[in-house]
């Protein structure tokens, strides 16, 4: 069953069309890789899926999942590099939209956070300072925070950017693990080769239209010069 169904979606920036008439779906337990050149509209598409304000036409239909339940792993920002916070504080902030009028995080939320930390193998980092961690560890912490906000689908924006190759492999393995546990993964990437290995479905956006379909079919289609 599809969690997200996108129909005839076009996006505009200052009346210039970024992409037009996209049709694709994200299914339960899906692993969709969104690839394309810089400027092809990958990030715009992600902002649309997250419900941010973008000028558009067409529709995005959510089934059995609300906007807020779609987790998000944004690219790391400059501010975060020396931000004084413990790993635990950052992970718990995934629940912050649900904290209400000063009522602190509930026991259930704390347990969920612990479970996610174990799943991502970062339990021992809990009380460490975020800024002292390696790039790979930081990325896992941020992923864990996103997991606290959702249990159905997660959007990742170039999640391995800036990591060394060992950390990249480790991170991809974690994403596979999450995907196997039933979470739908939508990943923006410019690493086509890796997307072909990891993803179940491919959405390739380019100036000359787009490709959407199974990874195997993508290779046969020869779209974007892939052979």
């Amino acid at each position: 069953m599809s969690l997200i169904e996108v129909k005839n979606l076009s996006a505009y920036y200052e009346n210039k069309e970024i992409f037009s008439n996209l049709n694709f779906s994200v299914y339960e337990g899906d692993y969709l890789c969104i690839i394309g050149e810089n400027g092809s509209g990958k990030t715009t598409l992600m902002r649309l899926l997250l419900g941010f304000k973008v000028k558009k036409s067409g529709s995005i239909i959510l089934r059995g999942v609300t906007r807020k339940e779609i987790g998000y792993l944004p690219q790391k920002t400059e501010t975060q590099r020396d931000f004084p916070a413990s790993v635990n504080e950052i992970i718990m902030s995934g629940f912050s939209s649900k904290s209400f009028f000063g009522i602190r995080y509930s026991k259930a939320q704390k347990e969920k956070a612990l479970k996610n930390m174990e799943l991502l193998e970062i339990g021992e980092l809990k009380n460490r300072s975020f800024k002292e961690l390696s790039g790979g560890q930081q990325q896992k912490v941020l992923l864990c925070r996103s997991l606290c906000a959702t249990s159905k689908a997660i959007l990742m924006d170039e999640p391995v950017t800036g990591l060394d190759s060992a950390s990249r492999e480790e991170f991809y393995a974690l994403i596979r693990k999450l995907n196997l546990s039933g979470i739908a993964v939508i990943m923006i990437s410019h690493d086509i080769n890796k997307a072909l290995v990891e993803g179940k479905n491919i959405l390739h956006i380019s100036e000359n239209g787009y490709f959407y379909g199974k990874t195997i079919d993508y290779l046969e289609s020869g779209f974007g010069g892939a052979k």
């Binding site: 997250l50 419900g51 941010f52 906007r67 807020k68 779609i70 987790g71 998000y72 944004p74 920002t77 501010t79 975060q80 931000f83 916070a85 504080e89 950052i90 718990m92 902030s93 995934g94 629940f95 912050s96 939209s97 904290s99 009028f101 000063g102 602190r104 995080y105 925070r145 996103s146 906000a149 959007l155």
Partner: peptide
């Protein structure tokens, strides 16, 4: 600060993420 501490923390750490989860 007392009522919205968690949200303020989340926003100052990561605005985009906060927006995505509905803060």
């Amino acid at each position: 600060f007392i009522l919205f501490y968690e949200k303020l923390f989340c926003i100052s750490f990561d605005e985009e993420f906060s927006r995505a989860i509905g803060v």
